[in-house]
């Protein structure tokens, strides 16, 4: 059995890349940086890593149903962001006028 055949380069690199992204997020813990910088790194690493999972491991772009999959995802992510930020706006940040 050819071992190389069982470890496709795309997936191996996807895994390496997610480890790097996790490592970058951990750096925020070990180095002192401003809250805004830390948060920016967190948002970037989390969302890029989610995208890697979707495209590399979940094969979301490879088949004919790709368009439907992404419409479902965009709709769900849109609703999720509205829910999360809407809640934070109401309950934490507030609105002064």
């Amino acid at each position: 059995m050819n071992m190389k055949e069982l470890f496709p380069a795309k997936q191996v690199w996807g895994f390496v890349f997610s480890l790097i992204l996790t490592f970058v997020a951990i750096l925020v813990y070990f180095f002192n940086m401003s809250k805004a910088t830390g948060m920016t790194i967190f948002i970037l690493t989390a969302f890029i890593q989610a995208a890697v999972q979707l495209v590399v491991f979940m094969h979301a772009r490879e088949t004919d149903d790709s368009k439907s999959i992404f419409m479902t995802l965009y709709c769900a992510i849109f609703l999720a962001l509205i829910t999360v930020f809407g809640t934070i706006l109401c309950m934490i940040w507030g609105w002064s006028y």
Partner: peptide
């Protein structure tokens, strides 16, 4: 498979409500 992706869309919303409550 498409049906399961739609289910995952609902799961995203489930965890979104939990995260919204967590941040609050």
């Amino acid at each position: 498979i498409l049906g399961f992706w739609i289910f995952l869309g609902a799961e995203i919303m489930l965890f979104a409500t939990l995260f919204a409550s967590y941040f609050t």
